[in-house]
Design a protein around this nucleic acid. Structure first.
Lengths: 263, 263
DNA sequence: TGTCCAAACTCTTATATAAAAGTTATAGGT
DNA sequence: ACCTATAACTTTTATATAAGAGTTTGGACA
């Protein structure tokens, strides 16, 4: 902690053991509040895998003693992590590392809903995995080493017995070693990343376009060629901010739609 | 304030003048924290139009005295409103009622981006307004009185000189009396709602589908018939939660796309 | 007139304290 | 075995206090 940014208010004599990120005093740009430093420290434990998903964290009291800050500061840090859905807090029970259970997948990462507006998770009816060479852009986006391979996953997914989504997923083979051992892949693939590859997807960006179904799309989705389908390109990011998954989905939107909340 | 839900912690003798919503003590279900009651009281002033968009609110100190709660409780209420983008807070300046300026429209309500990922607000190249009878579903969704009319707005919007979006907007004629006086309508239509009709849009829900361009779409957008276009259905909600606008957009997605953040 | 500094104001951060609300485990009764 | 009360824990709410950070304003001064 720098002298200028000590930030010890109040009357207590808390000897904060939290160190500032950039050492010198008299920092001109930026200034990191104590609770954000605490947030980052907690986040580091999650990134390292020291606290696995589902783990019960120490209580606010315990953490405040461990880290040498007040309970209120720990609370602000945990609230910030909670807002990013990185931890989940339950009054009376404690604070847990968020898991990729069905509900989270449904509400955070799956935006397809039926005409009543209910989110429905489709079942995987076909799945294929193979190792391949990445394209130039894939290699760049995923930050692969030269000659680094990728996994390519193709899945067909159905709702109410009707195949309505075809998706291609691209992953770094280095980050997901031995992924082929887990074939057949589970429907909830982010849970797999998290359980076996210390990779927690916390955030994703999607780009949507209306395109004409290719001959292959038509075959898979059981529609005519050139039928309008919704193309969804997704980039998924891990706890440390790294882009870890590329995905392209093509989706029929006759009985279903993509739901987006603007708030 | 009920006895059971007094919630006066601390050592102070604050005589909270905030009244509980449901009177009897021993309430079984629900319990509204004091800061949420304060939030609602502040929100009521916004809904009534007593505090217009752009207004500087009283300071936390002043509000805490006025409402008979602590400054920290006012802070929690204002933070909650800030999270919903209903007010905007600036350190050193104060708390302001959020306005529908260009930036807000761009980042909260317009999700079209170019291939670099930059949000771009399209210009209106054609605009038409007429009074008409609502369909049954429009009447129901907008909560119109029997025989209540609607306004229908048709707009064509262009990016970089290219018409790429055609939209139809439906509004209650009762809620927007004399809307035709404001023809030609400004590009930022939510600013118009807010300035002249005490209607602040705070939240919207969108449903996206890929559909084939109709003959009319093809004419407007300058594409061939049956070309895949992105159809966006929007319901926009006001401060009090009422559905105040229905909108259907059809959008070319060759050079642009709909950007959705999953977090 | 123009510049600089200090005061006064805002929100923000940080602390401490206390009580309420909700959960879980334990002990004791029927 | 089952239910109940209780104790011990958790997060959540509410308060008070103090100092930091950022903005605006007004006055001293050149």
């Amino acid at each position: 902690m720098t002298d200028s940014n000590d930030g010890n208010g109040g009357t207590g004599a808390a000897t904060a053991s939290v160190s500032s990120s950039s050492g010198r005093a008299g920092m001109q740009l930026g200034y990191t509040p104590l609770y954000m430093q605490v947030r980052q420290q907690l986040l580091d434990k999650l990134i390292s895998g020291e606290w696995q998903p589902g783990t019960l964290l120490p209580s606010e009291q315990q953490l405040s003693v461990q880290m040498g800050v007040s309970q209120g500061t720990v609370r602000k840090a945990l609230d910030a992590l909670s807002a990013d859905r990185i931890v989940v807090r339950h009054q009376g029970r404690g604070t847990f590392v968020a898991e990729h259970d069905q509900r989270r997948t449904l509400f955070q990462f799956f935006k397809i809903a039926d005409d009543k507006g209910d989110r429905v998770l489709p079942e995987t009816v076909y799945s294929q995995l193979k190792r391949a060479e990445p394209s130039a852009s894939e290699s760049r986006l995923l930050g692969l080493r030269p000659k680094g391979d990728v996994w390519r996953i193709v899945r067909h997914r159905a709702l109410k017995g009707r195949v309505m989504l075809s998706e291609q997923i691209v992953l770094s083979a280095d980050r997901f070693p031995g992924l082929d051992v887990h074939v057949p892949l589970p429907n909830n693939i982010y849970e797999l990343y998290e359980r076996h590859f210390v990779t927690t997807v916390t955030r994703a960006a999607e780009q949507l376009r209306a395109v004409a179904a290719s001959a292959e799309d038509a075959d898979v989705l059981g529609c005519s060629e050139h039928m309008p389908v919704l193309q969804i390109d997704r980039q998924a990011f891990a706890l440390n901010g790294a882009l870890v998954e590329l995905r392209r989905s093509r989706c029929l939107t006759e009985q279903f739609h993509y739901a987006s909340d603007l708030r």
